[in-house]
């Protein structure tokens, strides 16, 4: 399912003295099956964009197209539930949304709301639980008796069980330890590939954006300032640094090395493996400075 934002503007508390402009003239195309990362600092407007992706917010101006649904600024839009079924959002600290007595009930809550039969929902719950790497034995447990990492996974399973076509992830690994972080990110990537999902990752992490994304959108002060593939984005690293953003560690290292050695590699490398090979080649060939 394609999503497209066209010249979207959003104002918080419109028509009050506290009105503030959150995003302005934002246009983003999200074709089916893409893995897109939206990067920006806190307050750059990336969370506001995220909430437009399943009509939690409706634009003050501009148009949001979600599949065949069109949500236009300044109009009353109905039937948003259909849209929301197809776009699942994993919010930051999703474990804060758990509320049912058992893990199973919590996971099937979303599917049931969207009219899935109970039998089907329970079947999905088991599949989703497996996907997030948890065993069926916790189905009957209270979600509040689980460890923090397990709660996070149960909450994610609750979104996966809705079987959305589009998965929106808002800093899904915040607060996890390094192992948990890697496991969760790898899991989302595998799902993305297996189910041909569109995935939109909202993150601060340049590392994750470089590793997983097909497309990167950079936001600053409510506007899209840069769009492109990771290679394109990081091939102009100094520009990013000027914007006050980080570059991935590998890129940063390459820059330092190039400066010290007074040389230039042919291109920007995004993995440790690629970079070390390229540098080793250069060194063994002998570099002319």
């Amino acid at each position: 399912m394609d999503i497209s934002l066209q010249h979207v503007e959003y104002r918080y508390q419109a028509n009050t003295p506290f009105e503030s402009l959150a995003i302005e003239d934002v246009s983003i195309e999200i074709p089916t099956g893409i893995y897109m990362a939206i990067i920006g600092h806190t307050g750059s407007g990336k969370s506001t964009v995220l909430q437009h992706l399943n009509a939690l917010l409706q634009p003050s101006k501009g148009t949001v197209k979600i599949g065949e649904h069109e949500i236009k600024g300044g109009q009353k839009n109905k039937n948003l539930k259909k849209v929301r079924q197809r776009v699942g959002i994993v919010f930051q600290f999703p474990e804060h949304q758990l509320f049912e007595e058992t893990v199973e009930k919590d996971i099937i809550f979303g599917p049931l709301n969207f009219g899935v039969s109970e039998i089907e929902a329970k079947k999905r719950a088991r599949i989703a639980l497996k996907q997030v790497g948890l065993g069926e034995e916790i189905l009957e447990k209270s979600p509040f008796d689980l460890s923090g990492g397990q709660m996070r996974r149960v909450a994610i399973a609750g979104v996966l069980a809705m079987e959305p076509d589009v998965l929106v992830l808002d800093e899904p690994t915040a607060g996890l330890d390094p192992r948990g972080r890697k496991e969760v990110m790898d899991m989302f990537y595998a799902l993305h590939k297996d189910r041909n999902l569109s995935t939109i990752l909202v993150t601060h992490s340049m590392e994750d954006a470089a590793r997983y994304a097909d497309q990167i959108v950079i936001m600053q002060q409510g506007k899209v300032v840069k769009k492109g593939t990771p290679e394109e984005i990081f091939s102009a690293p100094t520009e990013l640094v000027q914007m006050g953003l980080d570059v991935p560690e590998v890129v940063r290292f390459q820059l330092k090395l190039e400066e010290k050695m007074g040389m230039k590699l042919e291109k920007i490398h995004l993995t440790i493996d690629e970079l070390s090979s390229a540098v080793t080649d250069q060194l063994s060939r002998g570099v002319r400075s």
Binding site: D177, P178, V250, I272, L275
Partner: peptide, 17 residues
């Protein structure tokens, strides 16, 4: 369940090469 810093990973990669 931990990780190693980037520069250590980088050093390792160079050694392997």
């Amino acid at each position: 369940g931990l990780d190693i810093p980037f520069s250590v990973k980088m050093s390792k990669a160079f050694r392997q090469k």
